[in-house]
Write a protein that binds this DNA or RNA. Structure first.
Lengths: 334, 334
DNA sequence: GCCGTCTTTTTGAACGTTCAAATGACGGTT
DNA sequence: AACCGTCATTTGAACGTTCAAAAAGACGGC
C-alpha cells in the first residue's frame, strides 16, 4: 500500500481536469459519455476512492447521522433500541448516509457530545432516544437550530398543533388495542392489564389502548415496575382474587414473561398473555407480542430529516402535520 | 446560528497565531501558561470547536472505528453482538474514538463497504465479526495492509504461532467447563450436553469444554440446530432415554430455553439447565448462563488496535503472543 | 553587550475535494 | 462572416486544520 491515488492522479491518467473527474463521480449525467467512460476506466485502473475528509471539508456535509447509545442496562428493554439502530443503519446506507454511535451517561454529558459532533461537523443530524418530561436536550438543540429527530414524542409539550420538534414514535395505544381486540375474540372471560406505575408517557399510552377497547370484559388493572419477578408475583396474587381473567395484556415483554410464569405456576395455561416489543425472549417462549416495526420507525426518522426521497439532511421547520411519524405497530400472534 | 467560528477567529481575539491556538487545543503543555489562558478564554468566549473534517484531512486520521452490523436476524443471537457494540462505543469514547456502523448483507458487499470506508479515510480501522472458515474479508484486508481486528478467531487458519491477524474472542471451552464444574458440584446424576451440529468452530469449542471436564458423570450429547422448539423436542425425547440426567450444559441460551421448557413439560424441574451468552431471555427465566463479558472483548479489541494506552490506531504486526486477546467468560448462577 | 541555547510563537505550505466563474467547442441564425 | 446560445470542460480559489521550518524571545554566562 503506497499512497492512495487522488483525484488529480485520475485526471492525469484520463487526460481531463480534476473537476471533470469530480463530475463523473458526483453528477455523471452532465459529462459527455465518451469522457465519462474514459474517466471511469481511469478510476477503476487506479482504484480511486474520494477522500471522505476532503469532501466533507469542502461540502460542509458529513453524510453522517449520530445516534446515542444508552449504557447497556441489561434486561429486555434495550433490544428495541438495538433493533432500531440496526434498521437505521440499513435505511441510512440506502441513502448513502452513515451512522455514528456515541455514548453518554447523563443528559449533560450527552449535550457535550452533541456539541462536539454537530458543531464540529462530525454529523449532519442526530437521533435522540428516550426523551422524557422536561428533557434538556431538545431545548438545547432547538435553541441552536441543530437538526435532529427524536425517537419518542415530546412528552408533555405541545405535540400536535405546533410541534416542538421532529419526532417519530410507535403508537402504543394502537398496539395494546390490537392486543385487546385479539384477546376479546378468543377469550371467554375478562381481559386484565398488567402495566407500569402511572407517569411514564409510554406506559400510560399503552394502558389507554386497553382501557378504551376492552369494554364490558374489563378485568383488573395490575401495576408493577418492569421486572419479571415482580410481574410474576403480582399476577399470581391477582389471579387468586380475579379467577375469571382469561387474558392479560401487558405493557412489556418482561411483564408478559412474568405473567406467563404465573399462569404456568398456578395451573392456568389457558390464560392468553400478550406482551409488547416482540423481543426474542417472548418469541422463544411462544408468547404473542406487539411488534414495534423498528424498520418503519427508522425510515420515518430519515424521511423527517431528509425528506421523502432526499439524499441530504435538510430538515423542514417543524410545521404541523409534517413534523412527525407515528408508526402503527402490529400484533404478532403465537 | 450564523457561522461557526474558526481557529483564525480565536487567534484574532486572543492576539496570537493560528498555530498557537492549535497547540492549546492539541498539545497544551508546550504553550506558555499566560498565553494558554488567554487562548482558552477566547475559545470559551466564541464557543469554538475544531472542525472535524479539516482536522481529518490534515492529519489523515479519522479517529473512527467501523463495525459491521449484520442484518437483524431476530432471535437471541444478535444480543451478544449488540452488547459488544455498546461496550465498544463506550470504550472507544474513553479514548476519544468514535464508532461508525455499516451494514452489508453479503461478504462481497461488505468488502465493498470496507474499501469505501478505509480507503476513503472514513475510518482508521474496522472490527469485523462473525468470521468463518475461509472468510474472504480477512485475506482482502491483509492484502492491503488495512488495520482491523476480528471478534472471533481465524478458524482453521494458523492461530497460534503465526497469527493470521489480530483477533479477540471469548474462550468458549472455558465457559462450558465452568458450567460443567458447577453442574457436577450440585448434580447427583449425569451431565448432558446440548449443542449444535459439528463444524461450527464456536460450537465445537463449547462442546470441548464440557467433554474435557465432565469425567465419569458424562451424560448423552444431544445435537440440534439453534432453535428453541427443536431443542425442546430433542431434550424431551432424550430424557425418555436417559432419565438419570440431572444437568444439561447448553451451547446457547436458545438451546437452554428449549431444554428448560422440556424439563418443565416432562415434570423434571429438578434438572439444572445452563445456557451460554447470558441473554435477557435467560435472565428472565432465571436460568444460569455463561456471560461473555463484552466489555472485556471490546477493550481488548481496542488494545490490539491502538496499544494498551494508545490514542491512535497503530496496529502492531500480528506477531505471536501479542496478536490476540482471549477473554475468559464467567458463569452467572441463578 | 554579545553569543549560544533553549523555549515559545509565527509563517507558509499542504491535505484532496467541490464551488463558482471562465473558457472553449459547436451548430444554427441572421 | 459575425453573433448567439448551449453544452462540455477547465481554472483558480476556498473549505479549516496541522506540519515543518523559520523566527522571535528569554535567559544566563562571559
Amino acid at each position: 500500500m503506497t499512497k492512495a491515488p487522488t483525484i488529480d492522479d485520475v485526471a492525469r491518467i484520463a487526460g481531463v481536469s480534476r473537476q471533470t473527474v469530480s463530475n463523473v463521480v458526483n453528477t455523471p449525467d452532465i459529462v459527455r459519455e465518451a469522457t465519462r467512460l474514459r474517466v471511469e476506466a481511469a478510476i477503476a485502473e487506479l482504484g480511486y476512492r474520494p477522500h471522505a475528509a476532503a469532501r466533507r471539508l469542502r461540502t460542509r456535509r458529513s453524510s453522517t447521522i449520530g445516534i446515542h447509545l444508552d449504557p447497556y442496562a441489561g434486561g429486555i428493554a434495550g433490544v428495541v433500541l438495538d433493533r432500531f439502530v440496526h434498521a437505521l443503519t440499513e435505511s441510512a446506507g440506502e441513502r448513502d448516509m452513515r451512522v455514528l454511535l456515541y455514548a453518554a451517561r447523563t443528559a449533560e454529558e450527552e449535550i457535550d457530545r452533541l456539541a462536539d459532533l454537530l458543531e464540529g461537523g462530525e454529523v449532519d443530524a442526530v437521533v435522540i432516544t428516550g426523551t422524557f418530561h422536561g428533557d434538556p436536550r431538545t431545548g438545547w438543540l432547538n435553541a441552536r437550530g441543530l437538526p435532529f429527530v427524536s425517537f419518542g414524542r415530546p412528552w408533555g409539550e405541545d405535540d400536535v398543533e405546533a410541534p416542538a420538534h421532529l419526532w417519530v414514535d410507535v403508537d402504543g395505544a394502537a398496539g395494546t388495542r390490537a392486543a385487546t381486540v385479539h384477546a376479546l375474540e378468543r377469550a371467554t372471560g375478562r381481559v386484565a392489564f398488567l402495566g407500569w406505575p402511572e407517569g411514564s408517557g409510554t406506559g400510560d399510552e399503552r394502558e389507554r389502548g386497553w382501557s378504551e377497547s376492552v369494554g364490558a370484559a374489563r378485568g383488573p388493572r395490575w401495576v408493577v415496575e418492569d421486572s419479571v419477578a415482580l410481574a410474576r408475583d403480582a399476577v399470581e396474587a391477582g389471579l387468586r382474587v380475579d379467577a375469571d381473567v382469561t387474558a392479560i395484556v401487558c405493557a412489556s415483554d418482561s411483564l408478559a414473561i412474568g405473567a406467563h410464569l404465573a399462569t404456568a405456576l398456578t395451573g392456568r395455561p389457558d390464560i392468553r398473555v400478550i406482551g409488547f416489543d416482540n423481543t426474542p425472549a417472548a418469541e422463544a417462549l411462544g408468547l404473542s407480542s406487539v411488534e414495534q416495526l423498528p424498520e418503519r420507525v427508522a425510515s420515518g426518522a430519515l424521511d423527517l430529516l431528509m425528506g421523502e426521497n432526499g439524499t441530504v439532511v435538510a430538515p423542514r421547520p417543524a410545521t404541523a402535520g409534517a413534523a412527525h411519524v407515528l408508526v402503527e405497530p402490529r400484533l404478532i400472534v403465537r
